[in-house]
Amino acid sequence: MGVTVLQTFPDAFRYGYKEVEKLHTRIAHLGAQPNGVFQVDCDTYYMNQQNSQFNDIPGSGSTVNKKLHILHNTETPASTYAIIESPGKQVTLCADLMFDLLLPRLSHMYTAKKNLKVETKGTRFTVSDFIVKIGSVSMSSGQYKGILVEVEYLACSVPALCWPILREFLQSFMGFCVSSQPPPYLQARFQQVQGPQDTMQQYLEKFNEFRESSAYPVTGSLSASQPGTTSTSTPS
């Protein structure tokens, strides 16, 4: 398991497939070989309001707005990831695929809102020590949201030791949309060993960004977008 970086590739005019093709050609020039397909999906549920401390006095307890996300990654096909997101805290559980069968049993804890499922799928490439996944993000309704590229550097598990080569590789085929600063997620864990759970947490961040983006295209920003704000700047 190496260091994984996610990068949104700007697709200002929503060309979708054309941009993906562009990336495929650029990657091919670097000597990448297509090596299968990949898919990462995320389903979100809203936790029922819980008066966690004061069961008998409704309204006086703390009502926390928590979300439960269930993610799958074809890179780790036997696992299901469950992330509980509450303001200020995130717990990521890595479980066997059978965890999906347990979800109906917990159904009383959460409600599902329509059309919240996001997924990214595309082709997977290998080029020496890198795995590059170029995916197009779409909602369950089929609505196209953007392009998300995942690059994994297999030779190293600590971001601090390999950020420069990762950045150089990313910039070589994606250009200046890649910032010289590492993404905030990696910055916060720069000296720590990365694992599959870190990859999924990054995916969740990106999926949240895509979900919140409305009809206006998302530019390649590295920071998580604030809910409600949309970037309307078009590339020059």
Partner: peptide, 18 residues
């Protein structure tokens, strides 16, 4: 009955779940 292998932060997770 359902048996699911999980990572070791399951207790934290269940606590967050309520």
């Amino acid at each position: 009955c359902l048996d699911v292998p999980v990572s070791s932060n399951i207790c934290d997770f269940l606590h967050e779940l309520g």
